[in-house]
């Protein structure tokens, strides 16, 4: 038996909106630790890892580890029917073939339940080792989204370079080139407006903008995004999910031939 009650149901809505275009079907894993997902996009270039820790739920009951295969587009359709202020409860029976999403309005005057069919999905979990990164950039998520969107109108790939000068996002295309440099800026009124660059060594990597733009669909989840870079490793683009967890996107770099 599984019963997870999330008072801030809008978080789950936002999570689904941020992954549904990247991944079609995925297994949600439920354990004492929390509600999690690890899945790759269909071309195996990007990987998404989500964790919502059990402590973040108002009520968290998971009698035994459960893996629930879901079509993320269908799940997103159902969660779209929840109000932004609704409390969302996820319920499933052990060995059952459905999951129920219950939506309660804050005043308890409207209660809806949506039952969705589960699916069998063959998926293997990849081991993601703890890595030391050459550079970690923390910046406003809206700024990062704006940069990815702007650059994708010029080119298909972005070169992200971190040096002492700051972080540079560059692209080139048929019509020309573009370079956007963001410097460290911690003298801001609000901490969410800060740009912080921790660099061990300069690093420069090339990525497909199509994926980066897809990751920025998670922007509504968090004011800040963390971009962790190391040569010869996928970039990690991380958005915190309130106080309860994170959504991390891993993207394999392009290789100069």
């Amino acid at each position: 038996m599984l019963e997870l009650r999330l008072v801030q149901g809008s978080l789950l809505k936002k999570v689904l909106e941020s992954v549904k275009d990247l991944v079609n079907d995925a297994n949600f894993d439920c354990s004492a630790t929390g509600f999690s997902l690890q899945a790759m996009d269909s071309s195996h270039v990007a990987l998404v890892a989500l964790l919502l820790r059990s402590e973040g739920f108002e009520h968290y009951r998971c009698d035994r580890n459960l893996s629930m295969g879901m079509n993320l587009n269908n799940m997103a359709k159902m969660l779209k029917c929840a109000g932004n202020d609704d409390i969302v409860t996820i319920k499933a029976d052990d060995g059952g073939d459905t999951v129920t999403f219950m939506f309660e309005s804050p005043t308890q005057d409207k209660i809806a339940d949506f039952e969705m069919k589960l699916m069998d999905i063959d998926s293997e979990h990849l081991g993601i080792p703890e890595a030391e990164f050459q550079a970690i950039v923390r910046m406003p998520s809206a700024e990062f989204a704006r940069i990815c969107k702007d650059l994708s109108s010029i080119g298909d790939t972005v070169v992200i370079s971190v040096t002492k000068e700051g972080v540079k996002f560059s692209t080139r295309g048929d019509i020309g080139t573009a370079n956007i440099v963001c410097r460290q800026n911690t003298t801001v009124d609000k901490p969410e407006d800060a740009t912080v660059i921790e660099m061990q060594e300069p690093v420069s990597l090339t990525f497909a903008l199509r994926y980066m733009n897809s990751f920025t669909k998670a922007t509504p989840l968090s004011n800040q995004v963390t971009i962790s870079l190391s040569s010869e490793l996928p970039v990690v683009v991380e958005y915190k999910v309130a106080e309860m967890g994170y959504i991390r996107f891993y993207l394999a770099p392009k290789l100069e031939e």
Binding site: S43, V45, A46, H125, L126, T206, E232, A252, L255
Partner: peptide, 14 residues
């Protein structure tokens, strides 16, 4: 010319 790498090049199955 650039070649897109895949995730499995970096992370092995558990």
């Amino acid at each position: 010319k650039q070649k897109q790498q895949v995730i499995s090049r970096f992370f092995a199955p558990k």
